[in-house]
Each structure stands twice: as structure tokens, then as C-alpha cells.
Nucleic acid binder design. Structure first.
Lengths: 335, 335
DNA sequence: CTAAATGTCGAAACCGTTTTCGACATTTTG
DNA sequence: CAAAATGTCGAAAACGGTTTCGACATTTAG
């Protein structure tokens, strides 16, 4: 391995000067700088990031907390796109991203300790159980943290405009003549609350009375709970004319369940999803859904995280990313 | 930040002894070890990985090359599962994974240089254009490298049993009475060659003559090429009774194209995919496909990479991961 | 022309570990 | 009991950079 000392020797100068030349310090003459850069390239010098980090205390590394708890791989269909955004933006700005786990070098440890050992510059948290004490510990630390789809007073966060999403979706259904709408919703976190708020708001604005049984509790991205929720609806005396599901996958399971029960979608009942993952395009009928701008969410997360790192400001911000209504063929005007 | 020196001072011993105690060296008495460990915990000592890496030359870090060139996100549906396997296995063995890009700290560089700066211990390459000179440079370096779905004489690689996959799929179709089978195949890489070999072998064993026009060239995971390929088939005088597509997505686009042409699947024509991603389950008719064991592929990649790192052996191995036929409803017995 | 300002460089300390090797104390062996 | 072996520890160098501060040379100001 050729070091800064080798370059110094080859140039007949000190390591300090080499370091300065390489880092564009002003106090090195153009001539020596030239010579040093040339020699460095010639010798194939590659700076050692650990050594540099040791003295600068900056690793150009942002950690990502991302667990596929269900091991279903399904959560990936949404979050892997977010992750791609995180990755692209970080790379563009010169940062690497590495996953934070509970094990380093064979030693079990908390997420925070992992970050501290690696001297991670900042962290993006996505797709994880935010209530875990370990996650909270990390968010409470003084490492810059950006969360995706999580609400807290003292943390920067990126979220879709969930309120507006469901609001617009519901308005759209109402505009198609639907009044009897059910909303199968995911587990109770802030994101879900916002969506339900959007649902109620749309109903209210259109003068449709809300009642609790319009809401059916389910889970995000899980098969059985959504099949069960659908069966609950099917067991009722009077069927709604439209159903919203927590996400696109759930909607598809819902559609399959409705069909198995002899109902046609959208002729007998309209169905909409949420997320706007590619699958909605492929399935027939093409799913009506709200598309989240996953790439933008990821990029914003990286951007915000890096801003926090570089400004050393610990001011937190909540950034809302716009969503888009995708009218498909799984919904139609009520007859 | 509390360092090893702080611990040493608090214990009234030298930093060397602290280091030894922490790393289970034999030449430190049980008593002092106890005291050191206790004090270290008390003071909240967290070892600095960069400092350690500087002297041990080991970073507990494996790099991952993973580019979503098409930006479609689609490649992710398969590779994100592989990646999950890579991640899980690496984490279990104490390694972190970080993505390798062409930019570090705002400086453009090759993948190899990136690895060298970070002193990555080893690399897993997946989902990338292997022909790129930069990728070749990395594979030719003396960093341990494991590739996924790539064939080369001097590189360790993980691959599905592609030959057997298409072989069994074809045999299955033949067992359903199909003789007139077309194979829409992806771009020409080793994986594809193997699959075509499996296709031919199955035909041969069943005494069905092979002809070149049974093969239609297309691309993996891309919409238009597969629609086009399907149209080529539709334009022929005599339609086949079954079509194999390069992957599940392509199969679905194929099905949609066939339907748009008035054909029913599977009644008029049988269709099969490849990969076994979840979407095949959701779509109707449920797709007949070959399921690749993505998780296992990823885990094997990490495992092999770490073995190479730790044994310092540069012997390369090719590991083949078994596949599974998933009979669905997109194929049926020929009438 | 002298004093001050500026430009260019290097010695050395520092970042936080690991590891070698020798010193010393203690125990074992003969 | 002396010699040898063993156990326990620390000084110091090494890993590969960055950065401060002072030295010296050169240019500018007065």
C-alpha cells in the first residue's frame, strides 16, 4: 500500500505538504502541488479513509435502519424503492450507505452502539418497528436521524401527504357516485391516522355521514388480515359500493376474496389501493390507487440527513411529499 | 468520547493491557481483566472501529455492487430479495454491508478505488452490467469477490440451477401434452444460455424436434420487448400452444398482450414465467413458474465471500442453488 | 532601505487502536 | 536452593492520515 509518506519521499517534501496539496490547502505553491498530484497518480496513491476518519472524525457514511421483520419480502416492494432513492441521493453527494444491524464483528450490540463504533455520520430509519427501545435510543442520541413514515416531536421525518392521498381518493370515489364506502385500514400509527382523517374529511365535505362501521381494522401488506377484513364486509347485510384498502397488495387480496364470493370488480363493487407500486399496473383490472413518490421520499431523506450532518444543526423538520391519484379500472361509476 | 486510555487510567494500568483484556488475550490475569471490563462498561467505552481497522487492516465490511440501471424498480423485485439474503447472512456473521458507488466524498472514482479507500474486506456483485470495464477491474483485483448470476473462470459465483429450471418447466409442459412450445428468452448472458440448453434438452429427450424459430429474443424485465416478442408470435401462421417467458413480469405482459388479441390463457394458450416472485401468486391466473431461491442465493453469496475473506484463500467456487417448479393456473393440458 | 506582510513549507503532535518485545515477579523443576 | 519456566504487564512503535504552529524566504509598504 502506497501511503502519503511514499509520495512525500518521492517528491522530496514532507507528508504535511502532500496532505495539503491533496486537500487543496492554500499554503502550497502551484508548482509543488502539481508535482505532488502527478507523483501521487504515478504511484497509484489511494488515501485510506479510516486513517483520515480517525483525525477528521468524518466517515462519509450514512447508516440505514431497515428490517424486513415479516420476512415476507413484501414490504420490500414499497421500501426498496424508497431505499433506492436514499441510495441515489447519498451517492450523488459523496456518502456511502451501510446497513445498521445488531451485530458487529460477532459482538451483539444496540443500533446506537453500532453507529458509534462505525462513527456513522447520520442515520436514515425506514421500515422498522419504531417503538422498539433500541430505535428510540438511537433517535434520542445526538446522531443526526431522519425517519421515514414516522411522527415524533423531536425527529426529522419524511412522509407522503397521506391525508391528501386518501382525501382525494375518497373524493374521487364520491364523484363516481359512491356514497357507501368502506375503508379497510392498516395498523394504528400516525400515517394511518392521517389517512383516516382524510377519509373523514372527504365524507364530511360531501355531506356523507360518517359511521364507525365504515372503518375495518386490518394490517398493511399482510394477506390474511385483509382477507378477513373483506369477509367481515361480505358478512354484512348491506354491501358498500366501494372499498379502500390499506395498500395495493391488500387491495389485490381483497379483489380475489370478493371474486371468490361471486362479486365482479368493478361492476359490482369498486376497489382502490394505496402506494402505486408497479403491480397495480399489471393486475387486471388495473388498480385505482394513490401513488407515493417513493424515489422522492428516499432522496429527501438522504438530503435532509446530509444537511443535518453538514450544518451540524439539529433542527428537525418534517417534509411532506406529494402524492398522485392514479385512476384505474378497479373503480367505476356507481350504477 | 471515552477511549482506551481513559479506561487504562481509571484502572491504573496501561492501554496495552486494556486492549488485551478487551480482546481476550491470554497474558492478562483474570483479576485485572475483570476490573478492566467493569470499568469499561462503567465509563461507557465504545471501541473506535476506524482506529482498530487502521492497525488490523480489517473493516468487517463487505461491499455490494448493485445498480438499478433501468431505474424501473422492477429489477428490484427479484434482486431486493437476494440482497435481503446477503444482508441477513452478513449481519449474522458480524459484517456490515455498504453499497459501492462511483463517488466518495465528492470525488469520482472507480468501484475498485472506492473499495480500496474504504478498505472493504470483500465484495458481492449483483444486478449490474458485468461487462463494464470498471466491474471487470474490480473482479480482477485481489479483493475477494462473489458474483451473482455471472459466469467467469476466475470468479466465485452463485447461480440458480437455470438449466434444470427451464428443463423441468419444459418437461412439465410437454407432460401436459404441449409439443409446440415457444421460448421468449432474455438477453444473451450465461444464465440465458443455460436456460436455452435446458429447453433444448427437454425437447430432445421427448423426441420433439427443435427449430430456431421456437426461440424469440427479448429482454429480462422489460415491458416493450416482451410485448413485441409476443406480437411476433401472434403474427405467425401457426400459434404455439405454450409460451415460456424470460421472467414473471414478462409473462404477465405476455398474457396481457395475448388477451388483447382475443386469446384466453390458459384455455387457448399456456404461459409460464420464471423467478417465482410474489406477484405470480396474486395475478390471475396464478402463474406457472420456476421459483428461484433468492434468499438462499443471497446468503450463499455472503457466506462464500466471508469464507474467502477469512481463509484468505482465493480459490473460487461456483455454487448452484436449486429451483422449484410452481405449477399454476396459467398452464393447462392441451386439448 | 528597513520593517512589515505574505507565501511556502516542515516538525511534531494527534486521532484511537494493536502488537511486539523486553522487564520483572512468581512459580515450577531438578 | 538455584535455574528455568511461566505469568503478567507496559513502553513504544506502528497503522495512515490531518492540522497547528513556527521558521524561513520572499515580496510589499512606507
Amino acid at each position: 500500500m502506497v501511503t502519503i509518506y511514499d509520495v512525500a519521499q518521492a517528491c522530496g517534501c514532507s507528508s504535511a505538504t502532500v496532505s495539503k496539496a491533496l486537500n487543496n490547502y492554500p499554503d502550497v505553491s502551484a508548482k509543488t502541488r502539481e508535482k505532488i498530484l502527478k507523483k501521487a497518480k504515478e504511484l497509484g496513491f489511494v488515501p485510506n479513509l479510516q486513517a483520515r476518519a480517525l483525525s477528521t472524525n468524518k466517515t462519509w457514511n450514512i447508516g440505514v435502519l431497515f428490517e424486513d421483520k415479516s420476512h415476507s419480502g413484501l414490504t420490500h416492494y414499497f421500501f426498496s424503492q424508497v431505499l433506492q432513492g436514499v441510495k441515489e441521493q447519498a451517492e450523488e453527494m459523496g456518502y456511502d450507505i451501510t446497513f445498521i444491524s445488531k451485530n458487529l464483528g460477532g459482538v451483539e450490540m444496540s443500533y446506537l452502539e453500532h453507529c458509534n463504533r462505525r462513527k456513522i455520520d447520520g442515520v436514515v430509519i425506514a421500515c422498522i418497528e419504531f417503538d422498539e427501545p433500541m430505535v428510540q435510543e438511537l433517535m434520542d442520541s445526538d446522531i443526526p436521524v431522519v425517519a421515514i413514515d414516522y411522527y415524533s416531536e423531536h425527529i426529522s421525518a419524511i412522509m407522503s401527504d397521506n391525508f391528501r392521498g386518501v382525501y382525494e381518493l375518497t373524493k374521487y370515489l364520491i364523484s363516481l357516485g359512491h356514497k357507501d364506502i368502506n375503508y379497510v385500514f392498516g395498523h394504528e400509527v400516525y400515517v394511518t391516522e392521517e389517512r383516516i382523517r382524510g377519509f373523514k374529511k372527504a365524507l364530511e365535505e360531501e355531506g356523507i355521514p360518517f359511521s364507525d362501521d365504515m372503518l375495518i381494522k386490518s394490517k398493511y401488506s399482510e394477506k390474511q388480515p385483509n382477507i378477513d377484513a373483506t369477509k367481515v364486509i361480505l358478512g354484512r347485510d348491506k354491501l358498500p359500493s366501494a372499498i379502500l384498502y390499506p395498500d395495493d397488495y391488500s387491495a389485490i387480496w381483497g379483489i380475489n376474496t370478493l371474486r371468490a364470493h361471486g362479486l365482479r370488480v368493478p361492476e359490482d363493487i369498486s376497489v382502490a389501493g394505496f402506494d402505486g407500486v408497479e403491480i397495480g399496473e399489471l393486475v387486471s383490472p388495473r388498480l385505482t390507487t394513490i401513488k407515493q413518490n417513493t424515489s422522492r421520499m428516499g432522496k429527501q431523506a438522504s438530503l435532509k440527513c446530509i444537511q443535518m450532518i453538514e450544518s451540524k444543526s439539529d433542527d428537525f423538520t418534517r417534509i411532506t411529499v406529494g402524492v398522485e391519484l392514479i385512476p384505474g379500472k378497479s373503480t367505476m361509476a356507481k350504477k
